[in-house]
Design a protein around this nucleic acid. Sequence first.
DNA 1: TAGCTTGTACTTTTT
DNA 2: GTACAAGCTA
Length: 705
Amino acid sequence: MTRTLITQGLNPPQKKAVTYEKGPLLVLAGAGSGKTKVLTRRAAYLIIDKNVPPDRIIAMTFTNKAAAEMKDRIYKLADSKASGIWMGTFHSLCARILRKNASELGYTSTYTICDDKDRKNIIQGILKGLSYKNQIESKDIIRKISRYKSYLIPWNEIEIKDDFSEIIVKVYEIYQKTLKNNNAMDFDDLLFNTVSLFEEHQEIRDKYAEKFLHILVDEFQDTNYAQYKILNHIAKKHRNIMVVGDDDQSIYGFRGAEIGNIMNFENDFDGTKVIVLEQNYRSTGNILSAALSVVKNNKRRKEKRLKTKKSAGEKLTFFWGYDPRNEAEKVIKKIFEEKKRGKKNKDFVILYRINAQSRAIEEMLRRYNLPYKIVGGIRFYERKEIKDIFAYIKSAINPEDRISHERILNIISGVGKKTFEKIDEFGKKNGMSFGKAVMNVKKVENLTPSQQRKIYELSKIIKAIQKNTDNVYNALNVVIEKTGYIERLSQIGDKLSKEKIENIKELVASVENFVMQNKDKSCENYIREVSLYSDVDGWILNDEISLMTIHNAKGLEFPIVFLIGLNEHLFPHYLSIEEDNVEEERRLFYVALTRAKEKVYLSATCGRESLTGFLKRKPSPFLKEIPKKYITGFEEEKEEKEEKEEKQINKEGFNSGDYVNHSVFGKGKIISVEGKGIKQKAKVNFSGEVKTIRTSFLKKQQKND
DNA sequence: TAGCTTGTACTTTTT
DNA sequence: GTACAAGCTA
């Protein structure tokens, strides 16, 4: 692509940002203002127009998906000239730097990256060992430790004030030592250790600072202290750092994101040029105005004048659901209406505050046979069967990794914790890594002959994997063939096992793809990449309705957005109120609305059934912040009336023998009825096919219908 | 040591 | 209504 094309179609401030010459640059980019476009065009501009070698440019994003999209777009602009550019998430780029310099910190380059589940297991083990288990929850400890790490505070620098902080420091210390013993790091360590590396070895820091002529940072409002520090280090020499962000979209405060980083950038980097992008290209007028009216209520923000050239469009539409199921059913009704007007499944996204809210929607989508995809939630790579398979490969490449070894030992029937400890003890006595101890299992005392035989078989499998570590596809096939993992699953033969086999097949396909697309096909490279993958990343859009949390939706756009569960307690979440974080929740609401291009549907429930009866819930206070001229269907007084109507429907008596109608299955005859109220279920015969269905989904039929 | 059963607590957001 | 953990038994 030529110079003129690189700046073609850009508005003046965008063009200014893309072609900015030298020094620190802060781009305040409102929602939908072409943030990614500016970043990718600038990268292409530097490479093609300014002849900057691509490996001297580093571009940091927050999600792998954003990185993949940027990569894709830059290659479209600059072709193979862009190859070699450092592009990825903060975590993946740090992992890369650490892999090269691991020995300086006492790790090897094959170190393992622990995911959340590993972390939880380790912490729980430590709590058990210290008999703190009943005093404190692992969840709280994990949060605290993670917080300390994101502020770069090691365990031995924490001031002990009370019993609680004493426990935390103790657990933190043991946790770090355990990780080190396993040649392992968690997500926070990737950032923490990169800073340690730079600060303890200035010559290494200087090397990277010299190397990176240009630094480009996306979603700057979500950087935490550690990330900010990393940027400071690598920007030290050339100071060509461009950060793009929107303080109104800062929604990761709980993870240590510092909105102050964007507020103070100008102070920290002398001579910063500020460019503001205020032209929104995504949403219609009503959507943008509604979103801005809400976020305007935040005190801590930079004033902006975001505008759109699109027409006002339809108003936001609000509706009540009696309870989450009824709300879900109404969402689906709206989807069918929109589909009649020509919309496709992939045009819809259903957003919610917390993952648990997906259940009611999911159930209903399945009932109506609508294809959907949940983005986030249980991540593919955190599934048991996938972690098991990976544990074999991880054990082969990192002999210090006890966690993975313990996992694969446990798969063997007749081998458990006791056996693991015996091998561990043997290894420690003889100065061997755990992996080496496994290789010498025949010398371990007090094992039954069958245990010895089985573990010896395992050691042969590990050796076979080690012969194939340069190609992860071959290594994976060794694992599957030699362990008989799939055979064992198919012998169980239930629905769950079949699903697991499908997941493994999906894994094989994705590994095959990885091997085809990457020069470095090694197990190390593959594991390092996917350890940092979240579910959003592998996300391919078929014609499916998307379901995700608002957090996961950041950076995405859809023609039609449903935002459900707009109730007190849930949104803003009650815990965030306790933590005095309502402004962040309001920004989250802003992010949700600004995902929409054409239409926003908002909904709340009157409450939900609970053990103590019907629990009434008020609407979210954010709804009241939307001026009436932008929204239709929301009147607080109406709440009561709607609720009564819903109750009436549910009171309709259903008896066996009644003829009923169902919106999907059609006409049927009730065989039997069970339960009362909203939970009432009926067995219904739909022309031969008998189904059990909640009576709230049925309509009574007049005799001659 | 493994698998089954019972019980209980749950429910923020994620790289 | 689920997911996980602890406890019991074979």
